[in-house]
Write a protein that binds this DNA or RNA. Structure first.
Length: 209
DNA sequence: AACTCGGGGCA
DNA sequence: TGCCCAGAGTT
């Protein structure tokens, strides 16, 4: 079977199990950007809880740009990695105010210049705030893609290239969400729940063990 | 490619 | 207690 056909079947079989729903409840580009920077290495529930509180206190990019760093660290402490995250969101807010007139840039090359923003965060913002074709690869998408044989790339960037080639761009964000949710709920890094997996028949990891 | 950052939730 | 979490930056 052709690669693209196989890839589409996998996605179609996952759709019924994971209803479309973004983890971060922010539509406004600035709030989504900040929430996504803060989401590194902590659970999405906690990010939502802390950021909702954060945006009541800091309503605009300017508010964050001129915030007191120590106070900001306390505001997001429970997320972990809080010192670097506080510094990054303050500095990113400052850059957005000064270089981009208070608006989050809507292209990849500018987004990744912001502190705390890498490939994954930039693509999440492009896809979910600007409705642009982008495919974010995080640790879940990376692992699941390799197990399902959608890519054999050794780095997230290589896996991203393979996925982008396999799927039409209107499906990129769907693929992102399906693979993340599958990775968290079933295809976990350790002790994956292969017995209840909807796509184990396609899976290298399952069929080789 | 490997290492560091890091508090909180959960077993 | 110990393990892990919707990563990015540095060496």
């Amino acid at each position: 079977m052709e690669q693209k056909e196989r890839a589409m079947k996998i996605i179609e079989e996952l759709i019924p199990f994971y209803p479309a729903k973004t983890a971060l409840n922010f539509k406004n580009p600035f709030q989504l950007l900040i929430a996504t920077i803060l989401s590194a290495q902590c659970t999405d529930n906690r990010v939502n809880r802390v950021t909702e509180r954060l945006f009541k206190k800091y309503k605009t990019p300017q508010d964050l740009a001129i915030s007191n760093l120590k106070e900001l660290e306390e505001d997001i402490k429970e997320l972990g990695l809080f010192k670097s995250k506080a510094k990054n969101i303050k500095e990113a807010s400052k850059m957005i105010c000064e270089k981009y007139d208070g608006n989050v840039p809507d292209c990849f090359e500018e987004l990744v210049k912001l502190p705390g923003v890498g490939r994954k965060t930039a693509n999440v913002v492009l896809a979910n705030a600007f409705n642009k074709p982008a495919l974010a690869v995080d640790t879940h998408v990376f692992r699941v893609s390799r197990r399902l044989g959608l890519s054999s790339g050794e780095t997230p960037e290589k896996v991203e290239k393979d996925l982008v080639r396999l799927f039409p761009e209107e499906l990129w964000n769907t693929v992102h969400h399906l693979l993340i949710r599958h990775g968290r709920q079933c295809c976990r890094a350790r002790k994956p729940l292969c017995q209840q997996c909807a796509v184990s028949k396609w899976c290298n990891h399952f069929n080789n063990n």
